[in-house]
Structure formats: C-alpha cells, structure tokens
Design a protein around this nucleic acid. Sequence first.
DNA 1: ACACTGTCGCTAATGACATTAGCCTACTGG
DNA 2: CCAGTAGGCTAATGTCATTAGCGACAGTGT
Lengths: 187, 187
Amino acid sequence: MPRAGLSPDAVVDAAVAVVDDGGPGALTLAAVAGRVGVATPSLYKHVRNLAELRHLVTSRVLEEIADRVAEAALGRSGDDAVRALMRAYRSYVVEHPARYGAMEQAAAPEGDAAAERLLGILYGALRGYELEGADLVHAARCLRSAVHGFAVLEAAGGFGLPADLEASYELLITVVTGGLSGPRRVA
Amino acid sequence: MPRAGLSPDAVVDAAVAVVDDGGPGALTLAAVAGRVGVATPSLYKHVRNLAELRHLVTSRVLEEIADRVAEAALGRSGDDAVRALMRAYRSYVVEHPARYGAMEQAAAPEGDAAAERLLGILYGALRGYELEGADLVHAARCLRSAVHGFAVLEAAGGFGLPADLEASYELLITVVTGGLSGPRRVA
DNA sequence: ACACTGTCGCTAATGACATTAGCCTACTGG
DNA sequence: CCAGTAGGCTAATGTCATTAGCGACAGTGT
C-alpha cells in the first residue's frame, strides 16, 4: 500500500471540501476518509478525533475570513474601514455559506489564534472612532453581533427571499457606522 | 406495561429538558426516551424522527420567545417598542441559552407558525418608524441580525468575559433604534 | 359484561458512525 | 543494510437512529 501522504492540513482541506458540497451536517470522519482515499481510522494518525477536526475547520474558516477582511480594511480608517470590513466579511459568507455554517458546530477554541487575529482586525477598524476601554469593547461586540447575525441568517437561508439582501446589508452598514461613530459613551 | 401517556407535546417537553441540562448536543432520541421512561423506538409513535423533533423544539423555542417579546412590546411604539422587544428577546436567551443554541441544529421549517408570529411582532414594533415596502423589510432584517447575532454569540459564550454584557447590549439597542428611526431610505 | 379495533409501548434487527487496539509496511536516518 | 517510527489497515466495540413486527390496554358499540 503506497502512502497517502496525508497531514493534518490535508485532512482539514478534505473536511472543508466535504462541507462545501453536502453542508455542515455532512462532515463525518467517514466522508473525509472516503474523499482522501483512506480508511476511517487512519485519520486518527493526523487528528485527535471528530471534535478536534471540527475545531480545525472553524479555525481554518476564521483564518480565511481574517485574511479577506484584513486586506479589505488595509489602508482605510473610520467608517470607511468598517464599511470595507463588513462588506468583505459578507462576501466570504456569500461565497462559502456551508463553511460559515460549519462553525456553528464547534465554537472557536478559547484563545484560538485565528479568532484572536480576526478580533484584532476588528478592533483595528474601530480605532478610528477613538473609543476607549469599555466603550471600545462594547462597540466591537455590536459590530460582531451585526455582522455575524446577518451572516448566520443569510447562510442558513433565514431571510425569506434572497432578493435585495445587498440593500439590507448596506442599511445594516449604515446603521452600525452611524451608531458607533456618533454617540460615544452610552452608559 | 402501563401506558406512559405520552403525546407529541410531552415528547417536546422532555426534549427541551434534555437540552436544558446537557446542551444542544445532548438532544438524542435515546436521551429523551430515557427521560420519559420509555424505550427509544416508542418515540416514533409521537414524532416522525429526530429531524422532526428538532424542528418541533425550535418551534417551541420560537413560541416562547414570541410570547415574551409580544408581551414586552404590548402598548409601546417606536423606539420604546423596539427597545422593549430587544431586551425581552435577550432576557430569554440569558435564561435559556441552551434552548436558544438548540435552534442552530434545525432551522425553523418554511412557513412555521411560531416563526411567522415572531416575525410579525417584529414588524409590528417597527411600525412606528413609518417605513414602507422594501425599507421596512430591510429594517426588519437589520433588527433580526442585531438581536440574533448578539444572542448567538452570548449563548455560545462567544464574547470573552461576561462582564458588562448589559452595557454592550444597551449600546446595540441605541445603535439599532438610532439607525432605524433616523435615516429613512438608504438605497 | 364483551368482543373489536386502533393506539401505544416493547423487543429484535440493521446500518451508519466514532473510536480503540493491534498489526504491518513503507520510508528515513545511521 | 538495518532499525525504528510514522502512517495505513483490519477487526472489534459501543452509541444512535430507524424499521419491522408483536402484544396489551383503553375505549366503543352491542
């Protein structure tokens, strides 16, 4: 038997592919093994178990989002940065709804590097608003809620007709930028 | 063997209880059967399968949220109504995070009555803003995104420290009400 | 009282998965 | 060339969902 030449990364690649066709529910070790042409137990040489594989998948997805969002926000600041970030975020979800949905099954591990990075980018985009301490934290949470909420609903088909989703999202962007840049200090 | 006196509703009750302790991942037919003191296959007399049970659970949760939110918004209008609605929504999530999380595994069936009702309440709360047609739809989507996004993140422990979540949510309320009542027509 | 019928619960069996144990062999460094 | 390890495999176990088929109990109409 020739070696399959697997690696943890290759397993995650395959897992992502499985999710892409078939949706989050299709992510099983059997499916991944089948895709890379290996018996199911062989995967355990590269991945601790299904739970870990799921975490690796969400880390991968977070990395991809962070890459895209970082590039979009690069060289921008204030409302402009937040707008670009939000649009880039959604563009990922629109392109890979199944991947985004896959994250629901395994939250990012505490202290996950990709999650931290994405969060950092988000804080960076808010820098232009000159928020301090707790206010900055609150603003970041609002931004996350808005972006993630829309993403989850759209990825899951939670909105009725897909029509005009762009316009809805533009409104959300307006609401968020308007609300976070305007009224400081809400307590 | 004395009858257990089950019914679809009773099965959903038990399923919700299973989710409450144990989290969404603990929802299995075996666990539900054990809780009501019945063999697993007996559940099929009341529920088509696990997928349907999950849907029934999400309908139940949506009903509970709709009840709470409807009462909160009753007799209020405009920003006041939206504020009350948002606070009531989150209060449910804080009390029953596992139930809320359980909805991720089974989106509301197309045309689900509870989902429609909740959506209707939401539209009702926005009535005070005098939005028309597409603008109203966009506003509703923004409201849903914000509320659901925050809820998902909080229920999943997605925010770091739980500290000050109240303040963060109040900011979100301010952002949403400010953004939706102010600038009509964003196109 | 009594048979009748359908409802509801049970046991047995099947099949998909995850996971573990233990074996065997292809590479890799000396 | 040789040894050791990494990476694959088969076999076995346990949990679950799901289906099939069996029996008992409750309510109905006589």
